[in-house]
Design a protein around this nucleic acid. Structure first.
Lengths: 246, 246
DNA sequence: CGCCCCATTGAGACGGCTCAACTTGCGTGG
DNA sequence: CCACGCAAGTTGAGCCGTCTCAATGGGGCG
């Protein structure tokens, strides 16, 4: 596996299953895709062994060969600037695809690390490019996925540029709630996969401010907080606080 | 032109020229592209009449049909949130391509307005998708362009999340300087295409803070400011201030 | 048990925001 | 030609939200 510097390929073979059986396929793959074409995609995908918390999938500067779909667990991506300052650029949950940075200059543009024990599907990009030439709906799908990433990054710029601490934290909670419920999990009760540190880093806040904000939201009865367990009591108020501005 | 709600198509025919003659083609199109294939792209492109300052090319919610390459002038993109608050999400200069938001759900995700008299090339997306199925280097090119947009948006998240006012303003200046010099214009003397208002909005600062920051950078001898005319006196210091953090 | 990491909470400092006054450049109309 | 209004930018004074620094409280693990 020389193309797999971090050697995440599954060497045991016991988690193998196919895309057509995967309950996440509606998220990773176009809905309107023939079973035959799904199998062609399935044939080029490599499923990983479990990746444990803190383990990297790739790092900035690594040669770009693949994009990755999260299969289970949760993943964060981050940049390091010249001074070694970390910026979390995204959190990825099952069914979501990461690695679209890196196509631009054939080198990965960020670091990717697992926040808990996770598994991913590795999708060799050159292979998927070839398939995309033959399956128009697949080409369209990847254009759409990248476009959605751009849109969500722009929303993030809005959040960072215009919102105060309450607006930023609640915006993240709403996003996570939506993404959990897309997977048929509860939209009201969720377990945060990331630390306060990662939340603060992502949102441009210190951990103290994140913590104070959670406490304030709880005091106002909008959410209940117990460590990483969050319960949303008042969804309407939560959404209205989202717009809170600087 | 029913597919052209803002009717920017050139109706005079006097600015027509071809991609193969365009001195920006190295920016819009793959370098390694056959002349024959460039002509095929050229055939589907519609060149716009001049678009004057303040005129919109499209707005959020408009049906998505095309992406656009800036030919001359300068363009800004912005979001409006539910409360009507504006967030500038990008500035686009000649040779740069915009409109990749909107592929995701077939509806434009932002507003696009000209900051001065500009011209653009309209690239019908369905046509370019068809061509991309036939010209692998073209498919790759659009994946790369979108990937680069994602990378630059992530850098922007870093800027908004971690840098103070000086860091944000100088980061924008460095970016503009680099982009001007890519077009063989001076990297040291440039005219800002956007107002202080737009700069502040983009960078998450008020216009007063932007103004004070320009004044301070001038007092420190790093730049000279005369309205929108900027001269970079000390490039090294400028780059070091870029990293200034909150 | 003791250590370490993560999270919470408090007190004070500071950077950028708000509000306000003033300048400059430009177009319009008397 | 000047008077005027308007928009854009600059500068100052005071305020406020978030950061910094510091102390304390759990929970997991050797």
């Amino acid at each position: 596996m020389t193309t797999d510097p971090y050697n995440i390929a599954c060497t045991h073979g016991f988690i193998q299953s196919s895309c057509s059986d995967c309950n996440l396929k509606g998220l990773c793959l176009p809905i309107a895709m023939d079973l035959k074409d799904i199998d062609r995609v399935n044939d080029i995908i490599k499923r990983s062994r479990p990746i444990h918390a803190g383990e990297h999938i790739y790092r900035t500067g690594d040669g770009f060969t693949s994009i990755f779909a999260v299969r289970s667990g949760s993943i964060k991506t981050y940049l390091l600037d010249d001074d070694g300052v970390e910026q979390v650029t995204g959190f990825y949950l099952p069914g979501e695809i990461l690695g679209f940075d890196g196509i631009g200059n054939n080198t990965h543009g960020c670091n990717v690390v697992s926040m808990e024990t996770s598994t991913v599907c590795e999708i060799p990009f050159e292979r998927i490019e070839e398939l995309s030439l033959q399956i128009p709906v697949l080409q369209r799908h990847f254009f759409q996925l990248m476009s959605q990433q751009i849109e969500s990054d722009h929303q993030m710029m809005m959040t960072l540029s215009k919102k105060n601490a309450e607006g930023r934290v609640t915006t993240l909670l709403v996003s996570l709630s939506n993404r959990f419920s897309r997977r048929n999990l509860s939209a009201k009760s969720l377990r945060l996969p990331m630390s306060r540190m990662d939340i603060g880093n992502f949102l441009g806040l210190t951990i103290e401010t994140v913590s104070r904000t959670f406490s304030r939201l709880q005091k106002e009865g909008i959410i209940n907080v117990d460590g990483r367990e969050i319960h949303i009591n008042d969804n309407e108020k939560l959404h209205s606080v989202c717009h809170a501005s600087k």
